[in-house]
């Protein structure tokens, strides 16, 4: 069983907005989607190296929830980490972290 780290309560998350969290020493960006699902990906933007992805814009590409980097606007699938728009660069996928909901509490698992 993977170790899990407490992030916050669901009520602490705004729809389609991210928060930064520290999970087992790793920086993670946690998002609440429009349908109240909660997902988590790495906080580090692989293109700039800055830890900023929680500050990106959440939207959709087709039916897929998507995240745009606040730095250079690459777009990823928030559920798989797949790079959907590398903005002219080589696509680089994000690490996705499993999220557990325990009542109102949101936990992120370290793989």
């Amino acid at each position: 069983m993977s170790p899990r780290t407490y992030v916050c309560r669901l009520a602490d998350l705004d729809p389609e907005r991210g928060v930064p969290a520290l999970v087992g020493g790793e920086q993670v960006a946690v998002f609440r989607l429009a349908d109240d699902r909660v997902v988590a990906v790495q906080q580090r933007d692989p293109y700039s190296g800055a830890n900023v992805l929680s500050r990106g814009i959440v939207g959709s590409v087709g039916e897929t929830p998507a995240l745009a980097s606040p730095m250079y606007k690459q777009v990823w699938d928030l559920t798989t980490g797949e790079c959907l728009d590398p903005a002219g660069k080589e696509p680089i996928a994000l690490t996705v972290y499993p999220v557990e909901r325990d009542g109102d509490d949101v936990w992120v698992l370290t793989p």
Binding site: T5, V19, A21, V30, R44, G49, N51
Partner: peptide, 17 residues
């Protein structure tokens, strides 16, 4: 103001990079 935070679960720490 609550969005101006380093880590939502560790507000005392900040970006070690």
């Amino acid at each position: 103001l609550r969005r101006f935070v380093s880590f939502v679960n560790a507000p005392g720490e900040h970006d070690p990079d």
